[in-house]
Design a protein around this nucleic acid. Sequence first.
DNA 1: TTCACCCGTTCTGTATACATTGATCAACAA
DNA 2: TTGTTGATCAATGTATACAGAACGGGTGAA
Lengths: 217, 217
Amino acid sequence: MTEAVQAQKLPLARAIEAELVADISAGVLEPGHRLDEVTLAQRFGASRTPVREALLRLAAQGILVEGERRGMRVAEYTREQLSQIFEAMHEIEIACARIAAQRLTLLTRIEIEAAQQECVRAAEQGDRAAFLHANEVFHQTIYRATGNPFMAELAADFRRRTGPFRARKFAEKRDLIAAAKAHDRLMRDIFSKDSATASNGMMAYMTDSLSKALAAN
Amino acid sequence: MTEAVQAQKLPLARAIEAELVADISAGVLEPGHRLDEVTLAQRFGASRTPVREALLRLAAQGILVEGERRGMRVAEYTREQLSQIFEAMHEIEIACARIAAQRLTLLTRIEIEAAQQECVRAAEQGDRAAFLHANEVFHQTIYRATGNPFMAELAADFRRRTGPFRARKFAEKRDLIAAAKAHDRLMRDIFSKDSATASNGMMAYMTDSLSKALAAN
DNA sequence: TTCACCCGTTCTGTATACATTGATCAACAA
DNA sequence: TTGTTGATCAATGTATACAGAACGGGTGAA
């Protein structure tokens, strides 16, 4: 077994899963790329069994899809499908914002503010990688602020799934700064603690986000 | 291989998955019940491989959870967790109702009405199994009426996940009849094609459903 | 040239065997 | 009596083998 994959003491299947996720996120495996069990097994120096399990798990997460023909492929969406996914994500984000606004505590408020400060800092320095990370933290913090782990998990799942497509809209430094400003507005609306204001704020934010993502794809 | 499972020409793993989902939804396998691969393999007259795959898929859907010790168990939630799951489901159902109301076609309307008629028939005859099935069809049809497969899948996932808990509230014939009446109101609200009416209708429906489910658990 | 069919190849689905881990219980010592 | 340790066993993790189905290429006929 390759040491790189075995580094941690995870079951083989999990290790392979993690490795594949990393490859897909990094764009090494592009959308539409076909994955066959035998080749992967050879690559990881393992048998087909754990590879199969890893593929299965990734398919369950929507990261891979079962091809029309045979075999698994890295998920690839038409513009229509992409807009449908964003519509669903949109709904969930709005619900999260509304619930979070209702249940805001001092602690979660501080955490959101801290995440946003990091976003602004990264945007101003034009540090794309740092911004992407801080952006994740910002949104995840809002999810957790709902106080509902299941909602948070749901929203996080969609975020993972749409990650590659959203990332494309942050090409230039001005994109980062625009996003940070949008965060500011969204944050104000959530901090209003008014459900309608919060959900309308997230609706505006997500609509903007969707149109930018579609433009970049 | 048991004929019941092989009835359709599905891969074994899928057939086993479907059978287990049915058992869990119907409450044959209760929350907390431990499932081991060998026993299931014997039950289905299959080898461990497809059983394993089925369990994996169910775990990914949150229907099963990996036990503290070893092995998979039917997901079991505290009342607090249950209410959180229902809250999330609540949000998604409301969004579905709103979107479905906006995009209602003659065909989907007819399909929803047909499903509801079957619910009423089953409720009046006190046929619990038939009612549970018709109830599923009714809700799934609403999901499909959104025209968004991803939303539909999301909602369906939650339905599968909460199946065992919702099933408990249909103990008596009068529970079935009450549920069928609630469907009627919900259907009217969705058919109004007014977003606010539809989402408020679903909100009332789900709030009622949640309180009944919590009472039964 | 083109279409259809057949055959070889390759991949997935399933079964089975082997390895390893984790749990249970008994025995012994404090 | 209780805690700890070791052995045993059962269940999971992994490997390998086999069967069946799908893709591709090539050959033949129209």
